[in-house]
Nucleic acid binder design. Structure first.
Lengths: 132, 132
DNA sequence: TATTGTTATACTCTATAACTATA
DNA sequence: TATAGTTATAGAGTATAACAATA
C-alpha cells in the first residue's frame, strides 16, 4: 500500500512535469488524453474514465471549450446526452503532447528489462482488479 | 503506464472512500497519516513526503490547526524551522482512522496470495525507483 | 420516475512569486 | 547569501445538492 502510493506519487510527479509547458492542468490533460483518438465521448463516459464527478467536469470542459480545445455536441437520438470531442486545435495539441509524453515516460520504462516490464504489467493488472 | 494510472485511480478512489466520513480532505488525510507515529515533522519534511508545496501546505496546516488536529512548534535551535505535530485530538483521530483504513485496504489485498503480494511489492519498488 | 448534464454554493487546493525572519 | 515558512493573488478543482430537460 505504501509502495503503491510512493510509486504512483513518483510517477505522477514525473508525468505532470512532462506536460507542464502545455498550459494544461492535470484534469485537463487527463480529459485531453481520454478524448484523443475517439470521435467524442459523453460527459458520463469521460467522468467514468477520469473519475471526475459531473459537476466538476462541467467546469473543466467549460474551460477547455474556452481554450477552443473541445466542443460540445448534443446527441440527436437522446437529447439528454452531450458529447464532447476535440476540436482541430485540441487534436493538434493532443498529437503534439501525447507522443512527447509517451516518449518522456518511455525513457524511464526503458531502464527496465522486458521481463521486468511484463511482471510490472501483471502486478498492476492484479492491483487494478482488486480495487475495482 | 495506462495500467499504472488505472490501478492507482482504482486504489485512490477506494482509499478515499475509506476516510470519507472523517471530515478530512485528501491532502489533510495525507498529512495526518504522515504525522502519525512521529513526534512532529517540519514543514519541509511534510512537504517532501506528501508532495504538497510549501505555500499550499501552510493553508492545509492552518485548516488542520483550526480543527485542533495539529499544533505548530518553532524549533528552538533554528528558529526558521517550524515543526508540526498531532495534538491529542489529532492522535485520537489518527488512531481511529488509520487502522480502519489499513483494515479496509487489507480486505482487498487479502484477495491475493502471498506470492502475488510479494511480486506486486517488488514491481512497485522498481516503478518507484525509475521515476525518482 | 430515472437519467444527463447544468447551476449554485462554499470551500479547498494549486501554482507562482514576493516577502519576512532567521541563519 | 541561502533557507524556512508566510502571505498574496488568481485561478482551478472538489463535494454536495438542487435543478431543468429529456426519456
Amino acid at each position: 500500500m505504501r509502495e503503491l502510493v510512493r510509486a504512483y506519487q513518483a510517477f505522477a510527479s514525473y508525468d505532470a512535469d512532462g506536460y507542464r509547458d502545455s498550459e494544461l492542468t492535470v484534469p485537463q490533460a487527463d480529459v485531453l488524453f481520454t478524448l484523443g483518438n475517439t470521435d467524442g465521448l459523453s460527459f458520463k463516459e469521460i467522468g467514468e474514465k477520469t473519475l471526475i464527478t459531473k459537476g466538476t467536469l462541467t467546469g473543466v470542459i467549460d474551460r477547455m471549450e474556452q481554450k477552443k480545445l473541445v466542443k460540445r455536441r448534443v446527441c440527436t437520438e437522446d437529447r439528454r446526452i452531450t458529447y464532447v470531442a476535440l476540436t482541430k486545435q485540441g487534436e493538434r495539441l493532443f498529437e503534439k503532447v501525447f507522443p512527447q509524453q509517451v516518449d518522456y515516460i518511455k525513457q524511464r520504462f526503458d531502464r527496465l528489462s522486458k521481463s521486468e516490464l511484463k511482471d510490472i504489467g501483471q502486478a498492476l493488472t492484479k492491483l487494478h482488479e482488486i480495487f475495482i
